[in-house]
Design a protein around this nucleic acid. Structure first.
Length: 562
RNA sequence: UGGGGUGUCGCCAAGCGGUAAGGCACCGGGUUUUGAUCCCGGCAUUCGUAGGUUCGAUUCCUUCCACCCCAGCCA
């Protein structure tokens, strides 16, 4: 099994980035490669980040080369150390290891400052006192060139002096910025004298109040990559326009290392939103219960939902890497979870919506123990014993008083198999006189069919799950569904994406009846509830002896589609 | 109307001048004490468009079309 998994992985063709890397190694351009995952600690990681993590760390694993984890912490007004911790936890949980290579852009603030001084001395940077609005106005438009700032031709000495003042906290926020002197008429707006440093009188979660100026992304990122000896700097498509600027910094400063920036398409998934801004709105507006709400496609939400890291890695491998703006169907993610859990999750019986069954001809005080396999395809996972008694619960959906045409389950005078139990036949139905609701059904069992097969060879169309009423444990099960009802919640700019929220994304079932061994389930343990889906005990809300279950994903169901 | 990108099956995605891999989804059939899994089979004479080069083009050239990104002192 492991072999076939490896083979299929090896058989997978290389994506365009891995092709470039292979060629760089083959040609001798690089002896070793170094990649990096550079998150900004301003939120939790989500499935889109997982794509980048699997790419960067995956390449590292494939080549026995390092992949750095570097926090791009240059905007203290939005960043927190709590996010740093959650990001480290999630990357680790996904199964990746940065080893000694944990870095922060803020560690480079001194060197970045030196680079800025260097640019000023080269006449390639200047202190500009235009306001933010003026800078925008001077930048020009997409079709018209910009105008040069009146401060553009200050002397080097003047610039040095003013930048020093900015650094010392002598200037008000917004009063000055340091800008690169490139080309105000460049068709690429990023080259129109981009801002390098802005004044921010904000304490930084790592450097405290040492700085009152903070470097901007483009400047910081390119130099940080060079400092760390990154060979391939992988980022998403929207940075394509920034590549000339990335290169300009490294060329102008003549750094020893000049990484190659390569852009790939970010992940879009149907029935969800991926932007941090929107995810933050869902959290802060209490549309979900926190960053790790199991409906969220954050790494922590998926973990709580019951996804294993291996499922997320498989998903990332399945979707590939390209430059085309793509929308991956949610079913691909769900399928990755099923595939992964099908192999590993022990099978168990759980009745979500109980209907009492009384077996009239079963001795009232008798308790039998019936053997059930933990995983029919993997006998090495062993078996367990299930108590069988006169009163049971079955799934309400498994009984129809007037069975539909292809309904294989229980109905009046119909016989079905209780999984690992007996064949039972329904003999009568009891209803609530007032509501007409079925309150219990009476059946008879065939003692000859113990274990589930008939000596006379007769067949039965359906096998249903059950649980002994006397022994079942009652506990809540949370049924999660997709968070949005439309495939692309933010397709229409005139409609708030939150209007597409699925009101049924969470249903809490309070009196589910589960087989007794589940009382001992450990937090985070995954199971297959036979014929229902994959479920796990909630990491947060489960108490010892009182588990709370979350539905990770349903089983495929060809009946429901008929 | 400036610049940068992208267009191969419903959704992803291989293909790198020699006659369209694979996954998801879907549809058949088989096995099955989970209507699950598993197993077989089907699923683009066609690669955004129109031309050109070539014995031969999804792959090279040109035209046009469509879509995405860029005017933060965010990343």
């Amino acid at each position: 099994m492991t072999d076939s998994t490896n083979n299929s992985l090896e058989a997978r063709p290389l994506d365009f980035i891995r092709q470039i890397i292979s060629e760089d190694l083959r040609s001798g351009k690089h002896q070793q490669i170094v990649t990096r995952f550079p998150p900004e600690p301003n939120g939790f990681l989500h499935i889109g980040h997982a794509k980048s993590i699997c790419l960067n760390f995956g390449i590292g694993l494939e080549h026995g080369s390092p992949c750095h984890l570097r926090f791009d912490d240059t905007n203290p007004s939005k960043e927190e150390s709590a996010y740093v911790e959650s990001i480290k936890k999630d990357v680790q949980w996904l199964g990746f290891d940065w080893g000694e290579n944990l870095f922060y852009a803020s560690d480079y603030f001194d060197r970045l400052y030196d680079c800025a001084i260097q640019l000023i001395k080269m006449g390639k940077a200047y202190v500009c006192e235009l306001s933010a609005d003026e800078i925008r106005a001077y930048r020009g438009t997409l079709t018209e060139p910009g105008q040069e700032s009146p401060y553009r031709d200050r002397t080097i000495g003047e610039n040095l002096d003013l930048f020093e003042q900015m650094k010392n906290g002598a200037c008000a926020e917004g009063s000055k910025v340091l800008r690169a002197k490139i080309d105000m008429s460049s068709p690429n707006l990023n080259m129109r004298d981009p801002v390098l440093y802005r004044i921010l009188h904000v304490a930084h979660h790592r450097t405290g109040d040492k700085w009152s100026i903070y470097p901007m992304y483009d400047f910081t990122h390119s130099i940080s990559d060079a400092i760390e000896g990154i060979t391939h700097s992988l980022c998403t498509l929207e940075f394509e326009d920034h590549r000339p600027l990335y290169n300009w910094f490294l060329d102008t400063l003549q750094t020893d290392c000049h990484p190659r920036q390569i852009e790939f398409a970010r992940l879009n998934l149907t029935y969800t939103v991926m932007s941090k801004r929107k995810i933050l709105q869902l959290v802060q507006g209490d549309y979900v219960k926190g960053w790790d709400d199991p409906r969220m496609l954050t790494i922590s939400g998926l973990r709580r939902r019951g996804y294993r890291a291996s499922a997320i890695r498989k998903f990332c491998a399945d979707i590939g890497i390209g430059k085309k703006e793509s929308w991956i169907d949610m079913s691909v993610l769900e399928n990755a979870a099923r595939d992964d859990l099908n192999e590993s999750a022990p099978r168990v019986m759980a009745v979500l919506n109980p209907l009492k069954v009384i077996i009239d001809n079963y001795p009232p005080d008798q308790i039998e123990e019936l053997e059930a396999q933990n995983h029919p395809q993997r006998p090495e996972l062993g078996s367990r014993r299930l108590p069988f008694t006169r009163e049971l619960y079955i799934e309400r959906e498994d009984f129809m008083e007037e069975p539909a045409k292809k309904f294989f389950r229980l109905g009046p005078d119909r016989e079905v198999r209780l999984r690992y139990g007996y064949f039972i036949r329904c003999v009568s139905v009891v209803k609530d006189a007032a509501t007409g609701e079925i309150t219990e059904i009476h059946c008879t069992y065939d003692p000859e069919t113990r274990g589930g097969s008939a000596p006379d060879g007769r067949k039965v169309k359906g096998t249903i799950h059950w649980v002994s009423a006397l022994h079942a444990i009652q506990c809540p099960v949370r049924i999660y569904d997709r968070l949005f009802v439309t495939a692309n919640p933010d397709a229409d700019k005139n409609i708030d994406f939150k209007d597409h929220l699925n009101p049924q994304s969470l249903t809490i079932l309070e009196n589910c009846m589960l087989e007794p061994m589940l009382a001992k389930a450990q937090a985070g343990e995954q199971f297959q509830f036979e014929r229902q889906g994959y479920f796990c005990t909630d990491l947060i809300d489960s108490k010892p002896g009182a588990p709370v279950f979350n539905r990770t994903v349903t089983l495929k169901d060809s009946w429901i589609n008929t």
